[in-house]
Computed example of a mutant assay.
Amino acid sequence: MTTPLTTPFSASSTAAEVLAGTDLTGRRAVVTGGASGIGVETARALAGAGAAVTLAVRDTAAGDRTADDIHATTGARDVTVAHLDLADPSSVAAFTSAWEGPLHILVNNAGVMAAPETRTPQGWELQFATNHLGHFALTTGLHRALAAADGARVVSVSSSAHLRSPVVFEDIHFRERPYEPWAAYGQSKTANVLFAVGATARWADDGILVNSLMPGGIRTRLQRHVSDETLERMRARVGAGAPNWKSPEQGAATSVLLAASPLLDGVSGRYFEDCNEAAHAEPGAARGVAPYALDPEAAALLWQVSLDTLAA
């Protein structure tokens, strides 16, 4: 691995600070899950820098409220709302077919964490279906729009939970092994990193940059299936190295760095945390990137498995 890329920003930086002085006028952005958590602050920072932002959300009423709030706080008028249910292939297809013109920034931010065992009508495990397959279908479905943007950026929001599990190709959907919420979440987040590696290998000639990130620990609705006691127990296990909780504005900072900062021009296929590229994680570590999440062979296999699963 080459020397990790560093920036002037850190865990305490906010999204607005990262984009200070960046002019996104004329650029179009989509933020999935843009009506809650760090998605709101990601969208707010992009809109505040001049981008035309589409909030791709399941709850369009919440999206409308968020769009109004972004307008009130930034003065940005070009914030629109579109329905998107990542666990429903027909919803993803409707979104991609309705999109017209180039797309400069796609932030794959939405997700579900540590959910009870749930399956989509297709029989897919919900976390993998939402966090990976839905975003895979969305991004590949928007490939032409991204390629037309001449320097598009795709941001894949992962998590340090990817350190809990590689993608278990032999039984992705827990049909044979007992379901474990965190293992399911972990492999879906590994898939988010592998997607960036796979897309970089395929789309570099289209000028599309794709990177992944760990936003940090932020208390949002993402943790609605996780008790406060469980979260604190997890932090205690990490011990003295446990990072502090971030505000949503700080949690969105790494996302907007990858989405729009000129500091990342030409950078693709890498994993970031706290606004800097992460080092390889040692076994048992709570930070860094697992080597299996950057494995090009695993990325290629995941790409094919994803195509086959969606086509079935």
Results as ranks from 00 to 15, higher is better:
residue 1 M to E: 09
residue 5 L to H: 08
residue 5 L to Q: 05
residue 11 A to L: 15
residue 21 G to E: 02
residue 23 D to C: 06
residue 24 L to Q: 09
residue 27 R to P: 06
residue 28 R to T: 10
residue 28 R to Q: 07
residue 32 T to R: 03
residue 35 A to P: 09
residue 37 G to K: 01
residue 37 G to A: 14
residue 39 G to L: 12
residue 40 V to I: 15
residue 41 E to R: 08
residue 44 R to Q: 15
residue 45 A to D: 03
residue 46 L to E: 08
residue 47 A to H: 01
residue 49 A to T: 13
residue 49 A to D: 11
residue 54 T to D: 02
residue 55 L to Q: 00
residue 57 V to N: 03
residue 58 R to S: 04
residue 58 R to H: 01
residue 59 D to E: 07
residue 61 A to C: 00
residue 64 D to T: 13
residue 65 R to W: 00
residue 67 A to H: 05
residue 69 D to R: 00
residue 71 H to M: 09
residue 75 G to D: 08
residue 79 V to P: 01
residue 79 V to M: 04
residue 80 T to P: 04
residue 84 L to V: 01
residue 86 L to R: 05
residue 88 D to R: 12
residue 89 P to I: 14
residue 92 V to A: 06
residue 93 A to R: 08
residue 97 S to G: 12
residue 97 S to I: 04
residue 97 S to F: 07
residue 98 A to Y: 09
residue 98 A to D: 06
residue 100 E to M: 10
residue 104 H to D: 06
residue 105 I to R: 00
residue 105 I to W: 04
residue 105 I to N: 02
residue 106 L to K: 00
residue 107 V to Q: 01
residue 108 N to Y: 07
residue 109 N to S: 00
residue 109 N to A: 01
residue 112 V to W: 15
residue 118 T to H: 13
residue 127 Q to A: 08
residue 127 Q to E: 06
residue 128 F to C: 10
residue 128 F to T: 08
residue 132 H to M: 14
residue 140 T to C: 06
residue 141 G to N: 04
residue 142 L to E: 02
residue 147 A to C: 03
residue 147 A to Y: 07
residue 149 A to Q: 03
residue 150 D to A: 05
residue 152 A to F: 12
residue 154 V to Q: 02
residue 155 V to C: 04
residue 158 S to H: 06
residue 159 S to L: 13
residue 161 A to S: 14
residue 162 H to F: 12
residue 163 L to Q: 03
residue 166 P to K: 04
residue 169 F to L: 12
residue 170 E to C: 11
residue 171 D to P: 14
residue 172 I to G: 03
residue 173 H to D: 13
residue 173 H to I: 15
residue 173 H to Y: 12
residue 175 R to F: 14
residue 178 P to N: 10
residue 179 Y to L: 11
residue 179 Y to G: 11
residue 181 P to V: 06
residue 191 A to W: 06
residue 195 F to H: 08
residue 198 G to A: 08
residue 200 T to E: 15
residue 201 A to H: 05
residue 204 A to Y: 05
residue 206 D to R: 12
residue 207 G to P: 00
residue 208 I to E: 05
residue 209 L to E: 09
residue 210 V to P: 10
residue 211 N to H: 02
residue 214 M to N: 10
residue 216 G to D: 07
residue 219 R to T: 01
residue 223 Q to L: 13
residue 224 R to D: 02
residue 225 H to N: 09
residue 226 V to R: 00
residue 232 E to V: 14
residue 235 R to G: 12
residue 236 A to P: 03
residue 241 G to H: 13
residue 242 A to D: 05
residue 242 A to M: 10
residue 244 N to Y: 07
residue 245 W to G: 00
residue 246 K to C: 08
residue 248 P to F: 07
residue 249 E to W: 09
residue 249 E to I: 10
residue 249 E to N: 03
residue 250 Q to T: 01
residue 250 Q to C: 02
residue 252 A to I: 04
residue 253 A to E: 01
residue 254 T to A: 13
residue 257 L to A: 13
residue 258 L to C: 10
residue 259 A to N: 09
residue 260 A to Q: 02
residue 261 S to F: 11
residue 264 L to P: 02
residue 266 G to Y: 05
residue 270 R to A: 12
residue 273 E to C: 15
residue 274 D to N: 15
residue 279 A to D: 15
residue 282 E to F: 08
residue 287 R to I: 15
residue 287 R to E: 15
residue 289 V to L: 15
residue 289 V to C: 14
residue 289 V to S: 10
residue 291 P to W: 04
residue 291 P to L: 06
residue 294 L to W: 04
residue 297 E to V: 13
residue 298 A to I: 03
residue 298 A to M: 09
residue 301 L to F: 11
residue 303 W to D: 11
residue 304 Q to E: 14
residue 310 L to N: 04
